[in-house]
Design a protein around this nucleic acid. Structure first.
Lengths: 155, 155
DNA sequence: AATACAATAAAACAAAGATACAATGGAGGT
DNA sequence: ACCTCCATTGTATCTTTGTTTTATTGTATT
């Protein structure tokens, strides 16, 4: 089950380029152990049509991972996971991914008009689900979301 | 026939800036239903040569509409009409989206082998860069409005 | 007139797509 | 076996598209 295609989700409105989104998510799957050495990735054209983008964009992501020695691309043959990273680099990748995801989460929340406290609050709400919901479990107050409909109007 | 180009009339003697005229008229066409969600607008260069102005002026109009969430501009792909949900449900959507992102963040962190506190710690590390690591001075400053989620992908 | 600011233009840039190309390997024919 | 053909795969180059940065122009304001 390396139907990788189904595991990749693209956000077309994000500021993060598509090819970086692809590379990051593949990297993450390797870090999680869902992709192991020798596993074949979908061809650039396959994945591209799955994601409905140009295959050059996928090729770009693959080249990035190739240069990082995470995969091996072979013209006329396909692309494969190159090596199971040793525990050290795997741990490095894991932490890198976590930091990346955290940064992403804050950024996207901010773009939705939420403050950092609100972003944290949403996480706490999930971790301490209280039936009566006495508002923020921690001290996060001040629900002054940045009013996304403020400068909204041209003219 | 949504050849928008033919529907835009510029008044070069008006005191109203060209980019406001453009934005306003596109806004009107959306309000009248002549442009619907997913419709592709002409490229900045197309519309610019059509109107015989610099493409930056069109880009400026487009950016305005993009910040107003009326359209979605995607580099390398084009710009499309983005139907803004009415303000009532917008807030609901925003909060739902935040919760969704928070859940995904925790889930992905967990799949990477991190505990919930580690996931929270990664966020805190970003919010208050520790003196030992001043390398990340706040990753999410005033980023242009750009909405994640909801793939707008006309095709 | 001098200064300041807004609107427009120009040019360099970056992401994504289109097209043509080269390497690989398998199918069929000899 | 060997060869040819060709479909498949990734690569290279160029085009298209929006973005950023800087310069020019026009118009108030002092």
């Amino acid at each position: 089950m390396n139907n990788l295609s189904g595991h990749i989700r693209l956000d077309f409105r994000s500021t993060e380029p598509l090819y970086l989104q692809i590379a990051g998510q593949i990297e993450q799957m390797v870090a999680r152990g869902e992709l192991k050495m020798g596993d074949q990735l979908p061809t650039v054209r396959e994945l591209a049509t799955e994601l409905r983008i140009n295959f050059n964009t996928v090729a770009r992501a693959y080249r990035l991972l190739d240069e990082a020695r995470l995969i091996s691309t072979q013209r006329g043959r396909g692309t494969y996971i190159w090596e199971e990273p040793d525990a050290d680099t795997l741990d490095q990748i894991r932490h890198h991914r976590l930091e990346e995801m955290a940064r992403r989460y804050l950024e996207e929340s901010h773009r939705l008009g939420f403050s950092a406290s609100e972003a944290l609050g949403a996480l706490h709400a999930l971790l301490r689900p209280s039936p009566s919901d006495p508002s923020r479990p921690f001290g996060f107050e001040a629900d002054q979301h940045n009013e996304p409909g403020e400068d909204l109007r041209p003219l």
